[in-house]
Nucleic acid binder design. Structure first.
Length: 371
RNA sequence: GCGGUAUUGGUGAAGUGAUUAACACGCCAGAUUGUGGCUCUGGUAUGCGUGGGUUUGAUUCCCACAUAUCGCC
């Protein structure tokens, strides 16, 4: 399904663009950050809280839902939105390609697909492009992903070349079996740090033709410089009129840098994961609320933040919750961190509108990183 | 009053006549980028109740004292 993506304004200083797309849930504005709800839940948050933090698109995961509770059960429930009762915006499912990379200890990547073992019970599993799309068709997210290989970093050129060619063949096979016309299907650009391979992957993925294009294999251990180059190598060859999705990137500065290189949407587990480990984003950098210096700090995490945690609770209280391992502490920080990023994206959109994104980037950088 | 036992970091404790006093918890800090939620990595006793003695060397052996605890009168 076409998402009717429209570019409303383009920067003339960099590749940033303001846009919007349409689904049955309404208009979604880009650039946007999407929180991750791997197992049909953004960990610790309920749907009302997702609305409060201005979440729009929410991610979920093919691999996890395939294993539990199974795509048929989600389908019988009426699809992901009904199952988890999230009605505020579109949903997106990842294909499972990344899980093969990140959590399968032993994997056997073959032309037909990937053989690996379940992280739950060790049983033998097989995921293929066709299988992934079939599962995603049943899960019923608005946007679904092609099944790709996320190659490790560093990888040799030879490995990467074989990998992107296989990912291209997989993309074609997935597209062929995609049969839910209410879902947009995205292709994924790989190629690691190699400029020509990113280019080839981008051009050939576009030739196959998708409703949007993802950039994968970023933020897997390379430096930020390399990461930004990888993004540039890909976005240069992606069509203006389709959404560009940088997968798995969510460090605040990476969002700004990504937007300046033409990325429209991002997702990342970081805001919720670091929250569960006691960290909060602030304009003056990331802070660890478990640190003893907050024992008697009776001020909010951020005075200027409009999230539920900042409007109602002090650092001292949240620290106490974290130290006492009370789940409310993890929840309040998850709320704050997601809101921090959605607010950052709102500011990014305003600054594209006023053509001041570079100044905004510099100001953000100096306050966030020069503590 | 007499006799026994014990005394190791913030806590529970292991241990040895001689290289950096184990481990756990706590505490202190760090990590975390398409999530294997509640994880991982570091740091954390210049000292083994106090004072004396034996010894080349004592936290480990001896004596006294202090404290705790048990039993007896």
């Amino acid at each position: 399904m076409d998402l009717n993506f429209k570019v409303l304004k383009k920067s003339n200083k960099n590749m940033a663009r303001l846009g919007e797309f349409k689904t049955k849930w309404g208009i979604s504005k880009t650039p946007m950050f999407m929180p991750v709800g791997t197992q049909a839940t953004v960990k610790t948050l309920n749907p009302e809280e997702l609305i409060d933090v201005h979440a729009d698109v929410v991610l979920s995961n093919t691999y996890h839902l395939w294993l539990r509770p199974g795509e048929d059960i989600v389908n019988e429930a009426g699809g992901l939105h009904e199952f988890m009762n999230y009605k505020n915006g579109p949903m997106l499912t990842d294909s499972g390609g990344f899980q093969v990379f990140s959590l399968a200890k032993k994997k056997d990547i073959k032309e037909e697909g990937v053989y690996f073992k379940s992280h739950i019970d060790g049983s033998k599993l097989f995921l293929s492009p066709e299988k992934s799309i079939e599962i995603q068709n049943k899960l019923g997210a608005d946007i679904i992903m092609s099944f790709d290989e996320c190659p490790p970093y560093p990888a040799t050129r030879e490995y990467m070349e074989n990998s992107i060619h296989r990912t291209l063949r997989w993309a074609q096979r997935g597209k062929k079996v995609h049969n839910n016309q209410e879902q947009a299907l995205f292709g994924i650009v790989q190629g690691g740090e190699f400029e020509d391979l990113r280019r080839e992957s981008a051009i050939k993925t576009v030739e196959i033709g998708f409703d949007g294009y993802s950039i994968g294999g970023a933020a897997v251990g390379e430096t930020k410089e390399v990461q930004y180059k990888e993004v540039e190598y890909a976005t240069k060859y992606l069509p203006e009129d389709k959404i560009r999705y940088l997968m798995g990137v969510g460090d605040p500065i990476d969002l700004i840098e990504g937007v300046m290189r033409g990325v429209d949407i991002f997702d990342c587990v970081a805001p919720t994961r670091i929250a569960r480990h006691g960290n909060a984003h602030t304009r003056n950098g990331k802070i660890n609320l478990r640190n003893s210096k907050y024992k008697r700090d009776f001020t909010p995490i951020m005075d200027s933040c409009d999230c539920y945690a900042c409007k109602n609770f002090t650092k001292a209280y949240i620290r106490h919750l974290l130290i006492s391992e009370e789940v409310l502490g993890q929840r309040l920080l998850s709320i704050h961190n997601i809101r921090f990023l959605t607010h950052l994206m709102e500011e990014i959109r305003e600054n594209i509108e006023s053509d001041t994104l570079e100044e905004f980037r510099d100001a953000f950088y100096s306050s966030y990183y020069n503590k």
